[in-house]
Design a protein around this nucleic acid. Structure first.
Lengths: 346, 346
DNA sequence: ATTATTCTAACAATCGATTGCATAGATAGG
DNA sequence: CCTATCTATGCAATCGATTGTTAGAATAAT
């Protein structure tokens, strides 16, 4: 009588006590319609028999799985890893589990993942959209219309009115640029990310706005297009350094490119930040480890994950009630000042 | 007839076609006992009605969820983020989803997570054990005895004979130290990680073995205890630099401490790698971005994740068959040489 | 023409927990 | 002592898909 290979079920407990499974179920869920006596009896027996609820069965019956699905381009990018941590923390607090999928920035794969998650009956889906520019708005609209709780974060297809948590890239870029101005830098260049992505358009706009508000001109040759890579930063530095007059500060839309720029500058004996200041974007973990440490714009990744999860969960729980969270939540980025942009290091 | 709020089920399809749900189920699974005609009819209707299988229901019936549970200390550490990526890739290839949980390095939480995952009927569990030294071996043994597929990776409780995928820390440390010797460095110090963790014991041993095999003495004052942090590296450098004679190379069991050491050295005008070489451990993403770029030992994280997932899945599929994967798979780390330890940079 | 053999599809049980409804027993009120 | 009101359980249906068994029809063999 100990060799039972399969797990114990409520029926086993019921059988062992001469009760009905429904009573066992209620007892284990602290349903008030069960007397204290039998409840304790049942709970004791359950412990004794090492009962583990079958969540799948309950999920099928209840129509809720207590699982959130998360789709990100890649889990090993620092940004997403951190957001996922935030999501997991918040979900855990609310008794939800998190299934993580990668889209590898392919919209097609992203759609497949959404369907897979739906088949799994996840209660909600959190997405940072693929950045291949092939997002199918109709697809998203159908999901939303179907009532499936869905919450976007970070990268959200524009023209789409969906619940989302994003950061204000424009504001972050503005602050970064304003900081350089405030530090007394005169000729501020910009390493500009791919303009088909709105986050980079926003950063560019923040840069332009800050210069305009300070009454500074923006020589077009000070704007160099990059992709978010180390080497791209190196090349951009070379290009900028060949100009007359040379810039004395660079706001990069990417930390990686900023780091590349710094390295290229140093290899020519250019002193950072004395001759040339740098400030990046994203506050990648490495920014405080390089020399000089790189000023950057923190994207509140942990908070983003927490908020996104919280809103998804709220929506799930309020199903059919007034749903207040269809709005776009915009987080304020925080500029982190480090040596690379501080002329008068304190 | 379009307002149906709940999803379409096989019964809906069956109803629409005057067939039985079981036939629909078989048709959708390409069961041979369904004629081509009806199969196509059914599949067509399914598409038309936008049918999405309910994975939960199938899981309950089949007793398999096609879900893997993963428990790591923290998803936002580069090491784990990368391993998770590997796991996810491999799982995806095999039609499995991945649920990720964090233990925050608490063994107690880890146990809770294991139980939660079991309730969710995950088909297998992958664990990198919490490093608080409170691992309950009995708990693990019970799970293994229960037949629940479980696969460890990275940090595995010693004295426990379980399927696992690890890297050979000793070998990595040996190679790193041997490399310094080969580069002509004479007095090699070691920043030694907490010795209650076997991975750090192994690294220490690799260091000692390499020196011994080269016939070098190991002055005890060249061994400094650290925790894996930037500041710990700074302090350790200071300590080492006050010795007579000073070391001319440092093998650090942590990239972070190595980075801290480099920064501290540079601030005193010590040239790296000319006056003092550094090699770290883990090949953290930042290692190639700092100046000089930091040599390190790559832990094959992606491979580790892939292998761990593959073995878990193999075990799941071979249930009751000969299970070949109860062994410990030991991956060989790879030393990555960068500027910080190359005297004669090519 | 009749029996044997295949095919197809239907029937029904099942996975394990939940939950609306019914009921037996207990307690209270008159 | 009898009816009304609770209370604590039991009963049975249900969630949606899967699957062993069975029955009917079609085809082949005799």
């Amino acid at each position: 009588m100990a060799k039972r290979s399969s797990r114990t079920t409520i029926h086993d407990i019921a059988g062992a006590l001469g009760l009905n499974a429904s009573t066992v179920s209620r007892a284990l869920n602290d349903h008030p319609a069960v007397s204290r006596q039998t409840r304790e009896l049942i709970q004791g027996k359950a412990r004794e028999m090492d009962y583990q609820a079958n969540h799948i069965a309950a999920a099928l019956r209840k129509g809720r799985s207590d699982i959130l699905g998360v789709i990100v381009p890649a889990v090993d990018r620092a940004f997403f890893a951190s957001v996922i941590r935030g999501i997991e923390e918040e979900a855990d607090r609310e008794g939800f589990r998190v299934i993580v999928c990668q889209s590898y920035d392919s919209s097609e794969r992203e759609r497949t993942m959404v369907e897979t998650l739906q088949r799994l009956q996840v209660d909600g889906i959190l997405i940072s959209s693929a950045k291949d520019g092939k997002n199918d708005l109709e697809f998203y609209r159908r999901i939303i219309a179907s009532g499936q709780p869905i919450q976007f974060f970070d990268n959200v297809p524009q023209e789409l009115d969906v619940p989302s948590v994003v950061i204000n890239d424009q504001q972050g870029a503005y602050a970064a640029t304003a900081h350089l101005i405030e530090q007394g830098y005169q000729r501020i260049a910009h390493l500009r990310g791919p303009q088909h992505q709105h986050i980079y358009r926003d950063r560019f706009r923040g840069y332009l706005d800050a210069l305009r508000d300070a009454g500074r001109p923006t020589p077009p040759e000070y704007i160099v297009d990059i992709v978010s890579h180390f080497d791209s930063g190196k090349e951009s530095f070379a290009r900028l350094w060949s100009l007359h007059p040379r810039p004395d500060a660079i706001f990069s839309a990417s930390d990686f490119s900023a780091a590349g720029g710094i390295k290229a500058a140093q290899s020519l004996g250019v002193r950072v930040p004395e001759d040339l200041a740098f400030i990046g974007f994203s506050n990648e973990p490495f920014t405080e480890l390089i020399t000089p440490s790189l000023s950057s714009v923190d994207q509140q990744t942990l908070t983003m994950g927490q908020r996104a999860a919280r809103r998804a969960i709220d929506t799930i729980k309020q199903r059919n009630a007034l749903d207040v969270s269809h709005e776009r939540l915009v987080l304020s980025p925080k500029i982190i000042l480090r040596a690379s942009s501080l002329r008068n290091a304190k």
